[in-house]
């Protein structure tokens, strides 16, 4: 870490600056810029397939942008070599879309995994720390279950405990609410908020679940087709009368995001046989 980070870097933990990313010729992100303020929970929302997950992968350094810069703390992620990148990733936690728990280990070993791999702590200390993390997500009693024995909500909570195992400064959530029942949804939502504040971490949530995330986040980016369409605090978004924001927040079937996939004139298509 640099001795005196510039003001903006201190305020914004993650800065994405004019990033373009494409798989071959398919453009996923186009000149996108966004900032994540330290200590906040930020949601990046958008329809499925609009490049939200790609954004997380860029921050984690798994993908490199075609142009632009991704800055985490005062490090420019695309320029890091593998060793530097791995050192940075130790300070990041990530919750994957389907949890991605290690299926050959029980709940305890899953949460203890990073501590065992990355630290030389004695087994008693690892035990205490792991039980603390499991306690925080309310699953201390499930420590010896295998991932296949967990319900979807429990698996998500274990994955959450694993993501915060090393007390990261940045936690990224990829669709933390997908496929959960309302109770689990509320639990996970509350956990994200409380854990973020308790750890003094910064969280980025990528989601398409508007209602749940608006309850817990500080700031929202709305994305569509690889560009940021709207941004603001939760109040800003709820008050906004931008047609796109309204369509998304009110979950309307048709609007600026059309119901129909681009096609030629309906009549014409029916006539040509």
């Amino acid at each position: 870490m640099a001795p005196t980070p510039p003001h903006s870097a201190a305020e914004n933990l993650v800065t994405i600056d004019d990033v373009t990313f494409a798989y071959d010729s398919r453009v996923i992100l186009e000149n996108i810029s966004l900032k994540v303020t330290r200590g906040k929970v930020v949601a990046i929302m958008g329809a499925s397939g609009c490049g939200k997950t790609t954004l997380l992968r860029l921050i984690g350094g798994q993908l490199k942008p075609a142009s632009g810069n991704v800055q985490v703390g005062n490090l420019s992620v695309p320029t890091l070599n593998t060793a530097e990148l791995f050192r940075l990733r130790r300070k990041m936690g990530m919750l994957f879309q389907m949890g991605a728990l290690f299926t050959d280990m029980n709940v305890f070993d899953n949460v203890a995994f990073q501590m065992r791999e990355h630290t030389d702590l004695p087994e008693t200390a690892i035990r205490d720390l792991t039980l603390m993390k499991l306690h925080a997500v309310g699953l201390r009693g499930a420590w010896n279950l295998m991932p296949s024995e967990l319900s979807g909500g429990m698996a998500r909570r274990v994955a959450l405990a694993r993501a915060i195992a090393l007390d990261p400064m940045l936690v990224m959530y990829d669709e933390p609410f997908a496929g959960l029942d309302p109770i689990s949804l509320a639990i996970v939502g509350r956990l994200i908020r409380t854990l973020n504040d308790a750890l003094g971490a910064t969280s980025i949530i990528v989601t398409h679940d508007v209602q749940e995330s608006l309850k817990i986040v500080d700031y929202v980016y709305l994305m569509s087709d690889g560009v940021v369409m709207a941004e603001g605090t939760v109040a800003d978004i709820q008050r906004s009368d931008d047609p796109f924001v309204r369509q998304f927040v009110d979950a309307r079937a048709d609007g600026p995001v059309p119901f129909h996939y681009p096609a030629q004139e309906y009549q014409a298509m029916l006539m040509e046989s």
Binding site: G60, Q62, L85, F86, R87, R89, R90, M92, M94, F96, Q97, M98, A100, L101, F102, T103, D104, F113, Q114, E117, H118
Partner: peptide, 25 residues
């Protein structure tokens, strides 16, 4: 099948994000 399943369920990606090389681990 085991490694393929770990890949399918993003366990390998998760490991990489934890700063652990799946090839080694």
């Amino acid at each position: 099948a085991e490694i393929g399943l770990m890949k399918t369920t993003e366990q390998l990606t998760a490991m990489e994000m934890m700063a652990i090389q799946p090839v080694a681990r």
